[in-house]
Design a protein around this nucleic acid. Structure first.
Lengths: 298, 298
DNA sequence: ACATACAATGAATTCTGTTCATGCAAGGCT
DNA sequence: AGCCTTGCATGAACAGAATTCATTGTATGT
């Protein structure tokens, strides 16, 4: 039988590199590990590591099992954490995934009333996913996904939570400030600042620049919204961000939002959950809060 | 520690309904189960079942764990099967998922050379997925997905394997046979036969009838291609199928394919895999075979 | 009310996993 | 080279956990 302990050993040996170190971090004797491994290999009938001198290199089988371990162990660990929370009367942790950088500001506004409404539910936010947000939902890494790209597939449910317009942010004294809207060509001399994500996922490219076969003079990537807007305010570039976000920051920074194209870029943010979780009251509640939240700075 | 045995117990008790029966099918004494459960509940600190008379109803915690069990156990079991195959010198099993009914015929043509090329790799085909093909890929239920709807997300890779035209199949003596192509309105008097899948996934609706706001006189659903074509040949209805499939059957059945609309409905079939599996030689080989296969009846 | 089916419990037992005490082999160092 | 260190393997002894056996307790159906 392939046991949890086996997977744990696999993972730890891979992490630490040597049997002895793995044994330490598993609070076992080196001998115990050796025995366990030998038994496992005898059971499944194929070696998991090949001994090259004193280093262990995983075989194909070993790599597969290692992969399995890295997928299953976190789920077991999360389940245990959840059980502990149930036991303490706590309800659990809502793990939120974000596939939309600027939405973070918005999320904070929803989380506040949520935490008040559900004092026994914790919230955790993740922003990096190996297999994308959808993968993280399917793989039970997160329970709720905030994304501009919904995917209506069986097993998942998406509902729109708010609409907004994506606008170009420029410094208040920028030469484009006076215009009612900008055209793609007008960005040819500009430095465009964006979050560091794939270019296909940047609306200003996929919906604005590329259709007109234009591109900015340069493209810079910046992680955080605050720094990005500091840069824009300093006239070091322009960026594309949600209108409400720009409105909010424009109190404290000399920036201005301009419509992209005559009609503007209209966007929608969705939250997605697993269908199987529909029964979880606090999850449903979060989605409702997110939708109803007539938050100020919009 | 939440062990595999616990998950197995959870699942078996749920399946069988009573502790005693579950014990039997796990080859354990009833007493052993009772002890195990008690220990588990003591460990995680919260009851897993509430005892209502002599029936056990899972608590919220129990339901969560049950869900976990149903997700993780199959993966462990598959891993064990895989290890057994490695041990026997076999390379593994390629689990193919199909989200495209008529592609089955095509698949058979690819599988044949594949089995010849990889004598130590087995092939298994699944056609039903709780969470859709994408979910099955992410959840490691299958290793390869054949679908007309690719999804370019991180963690997944899709590549087109062939193009075809979706045509209307009618009996040879049908009143529409002579036409170079049909218009949506001309189906208003027809009985349309399709596979039993959601209407959004039927191209003849989404790309042909619905845009013209038309619908057939009636809509029937049939599982198998053979029977479907028998029905069409007998003049009991029309269907929409890949052109190459119709061509193939028209040798043995009095049927004919007609273009849908002036330009026809052009389709593409993709195979999708997990990015992490890119290194698996036989998987890559399958995709190549699928793409290169200049199969006859196309 | 009785018989039956099911679950819980405690003590005895079996078995598995662990440690301890070594042995063995490979690298690194002088 | 030779020595020392580091890391893995092995076998016997041990400890603890899981299992069984035998029994009691408790709903449910007739």
């Amino acid at each position: 039988m392939l046991e949890r302990s086996h997977l744990a050993i696999l993972r730890e040996v891979d992490r630490r590199g040597t049997l002895t170190e793995a044994a330490d971090s598993l609070c076992l004797s080196q001998s115990a590990l050796s025995h366990a491994i030998r038994k496992l290999e005898r059971h499944i009938g194929t070696p998991v590591w090949i001994r090259e001198g004193r280093t262990l290199r995983p075989t194909q089988a070993g790599r597969y099992l290692l992969n399995l371990a890295n997928r299953l162990l976190p789920q077991l660990e999360h389940a245990e954490a959840l059980m502990r929370q149930y036991a303490e009367g706590q309800r659990g942790t809502l793990r939120i995934g974000m596939e939309c950088h600027p939405c973070y500001q918005w999320l904070l506004k929803v989380v506040a009333p949520f935490l008040a409404r559900w004092p026994d539910v914790d919230v955790d936010v993740k922003q990096q996913f190996q297999f994308g947000g959808i993968g993280a939902l399917f793989g039970h890494e997160i329970d709720l996904l905030v994304t501009p790209d919904p995917l209506f597939k069986p097993g998942l449910q998406f509902s729109p939570v708010f609409d907004y317009e994506q606008v170009l942010v420029v410094a208040e004294n920028h030469r484009l400030t006076a215009l009612p809207h900008v055209e793609p060509q007008q960005l040819s001399d500009e430095i465009l600042i964006s979050y560091p994500v794939a270019i296909e996922r940047l609306d200003i490219y996929s919906l604005f620049l590329l259709p007109a076969q234009c591109s900015p003079r340069r493209h810079k990537e910046i992680e955080t919204t605050d720094i990005m807007l500091q840069m824009v305010a300093a006239g070091r570039g322009v960026a594309a961000l949600p209108g409400w976000l720009v409105a909010e920051y424009s109190d404290s920074l000399p920036i201005k939002g301009i419509r992209l194209g005559a009609d503007g870029i209209q966007k929608q943010i969705f939250v997605g959950t697993r269908t199987e979780d529909t029964g979880t009251d606090y999850l449903r509640s979060f989605v409702e809060l997110a939708r109803d939240c007539d938050w100020a700075g919009r």
